[in-house]
Amino acid sequence: MINQIPGIKHTDTNNFFLMAGPCAIEGEDMALKIAERIINITDRLGIPFIFKGSYRKANRSRVDSFTGIGDEKALKILAKVGHEFGIPTVTDIHESNEAAMAACYVDVLQIPAFLCRQTDLLVAAAKTGKFINIKKGQFLSAGSMSFAVDKVRDSGNSQVILTDRGNTFGYQDLIVDFRGIPEMRSFGVPVVMDCTHSLQQPNQPNGVTGGKPGLIETIAKAAIAVGADGLFIETHPDPLHAKSDGANMLHLESLEQLLEKLVRIRQAL
């Protein structure tokens, strides 16, 4: 199913696919450089690649947090990345009226975890005819995501992807229940593990989300081992100075070595 996304590169290796890129679109040069670096790696390893970048960050702890460089400007950058490199792109939407707008620029619409129960949003996304990546809410069981899938399918769109991003564990931590990956795959959709957001540490006293990027490799290895179809990894050439979610992003220079290990695990399976 994933090979039906426009621009996805077909491989003969039965490999996992990768959604990766910066948390937010910070500028054109940055987006193009990150995309080019990831493409060089994924082409060599035979990994189908979808470039990820948020055109706007709506869910912020503080009113002074970075939200974006402007919707149209960021969406045009996403479209340029897709056109220049011939790859599919994904971005998240937050309200029903954003679905048709974003669909003009990207190949996959992403529903944020906190919004995965919003019926109007799911229906509006489905009606664009695009692939819909729904992130599992931190507050939901894997089994309950079947209803989110049904909302998209019942709206006439069978192109659904589910992404696990961990479960709330107390007020300031998340854990991953890897039983959820095979359970959600039983719905007949590709399942992705978000290896970076699942390591967030939300609700910090300073209003800036923390994270444990040192465990990205652990989460990714376990996800491939239990049968995840894809991985979601936010990456940046300078996470410490990223404008959004830098605390849990993978340094871009660490991506190649990690993917090499994961490909070997996939081949062993």
Rank of each mutant, 00 (worst) to 15 (best):
G7Y: 12
T13S: 15
N14R: 11
N15G: 06
A20G: 11
A20F: 02
G21W: 09
E28A: 12
K33S: 15
E36L: 05
R37A: 14
I39G: 01
T42W: 01
D43S: 15
L45S: 06
G46N: 11
I47D: 06
F51M: 03
G53C: 11
N59L: 11
R60A: 12
S65T: 14
F66T: 11
G68D: 07
I69L: 06
D71W: 05
E72W: 04
A74V: 02
L75C: 02
G86A: 07
V106R: 04
V108A: 05
P112N: 08
F114A: 15
L121Q: 05
L122E: 04
A124C: 04
I134S: 10
K135F: 01
K136R: 13
S144C: 06
M145F: 04
R153A: 00
D154V: 05
D154E: 15
G156L: 05
D177G: 06
I181M: 04
V189P: 07
P190R: 13
M193S: 03
S198P: 03
Q201G: 04
Q204S: 13
G210M: 07
G211L: 08
K212G: 01
K212M: 13
P213W: 04
A222F: 00
A222Q: 10
V226D: 02
V226Y: 03
A228D: 03
S244L: 07
D245Y: 08
H251K: 14
L255D: 09
E256H: 12
L258N: 09
L258Q: 11
V263H: 03
Q267F: 05
